[in-house]
Amino acid sequence: MPDSKPPLPPFTAETARRKVQAAEDAWNSRDPERVALAYTVDSQWRNRDVFLCGREAITEFLREKWRRELDYRLRKELWAYTDDRIAVRFEYEWHDAEGRWFRSYGNENWEFTPDGLMSKRYASVNDVPIAASERRLAPRCGPFA
């Protein structure tokens, strides 16, 4: 399958963890096109109060997100899984153009097609202002370490 995205369902604890790590790595690249390739062309999203449908809309959403959320750094944690679904909790840190830092917390529910592409992503997110000195997810070495 040329458009497949391993690991493929049905998930085990190990393959679900690998899928979550792959998502974390892709999102930390801050490359909208790379991230969008993990989703079906007609993927359904809810991100906060925004509802999207399709890879093109996802790509544009991510471009705008990373124009606003600067120095974005994310951590995801596997919460639960079934044959073709994964739930994660996450936190990420970022700052706005004025230099104000935030930590965003949330949960996501994912559903996958047999080829490993995500067909549904529902995310609930809350932002908390933090001081730069309170950052926990700062890169250790270089921008993507």
Rank of each mutant, 00 (worst) to 15 (best):
L8K: 10
C141D: 13
S4F: 08
S43D: 04
L62G: 02
R63M: 05
N109Y: 15
R67N: 13
A123I: 09
I130S: 01
W45F: 09
K120P: 01
A36T: 04
A87K: 05
E14N: 10
C141A: 14
F112T: 00
D49G: 07
N28V: 02
A138Y: 09
I130A: 02
A38Q: 07
P143S: 14
E111H: 13
K19T: 08
R100S: 09
A80P: 00
W94G: 00
E60G: 03
G106M: 10
Y105M: 01
F61E: 02
V88Q: 04
D31G: 02
A87R: 05
Y39H: 04
D3L: 06
P2I: 08
N47Y: 14
E93W: 04
D3T: 08
A26T: 11
K76E: 04
T113K: 14
W27F: 06
F61C: 00
G142D: 04
N47A: 07
N28G: 01
F11E: 00
P10T: 12
S29Y: 07
I58T: 09
A16W: 10
V125M: 03
S4V: 06
D115R: 13
S4P: 01
E56R: 15
A36W: 01
L74D: 05
R121D: 06
E134Y: 10
I86E: 00
N28C: 02
S29T: 11
A145D: 10
A132S: 13
L78G: 03
Y105R: 07
L37I: 06
R63N: 13
R68T: 13
T59Q: 12
Y122A: 07
R135Q: 12
D83W: 15
R100L: 03
P129D: 10
R103Q: 09
A123P: 00
A138I: 03
E56W: 07
A13S: 08
R135K: 10
L62W: 08
R68L: 14
D31F: 04
G106P: 01
P9C: 07
P114L: 11
F11P: 00
R135E: 00
A38K: 02
S43K: 09
R55G: 00
A132Q: 15
S119D: 06
F102G: 01
R85Q: 13
D3C: 02
K19A: 05
I86Y: 02
Q21L: 15
D71L: 08
N109T: 14
L117M: 05
D115Y: 08
L62Q: 08
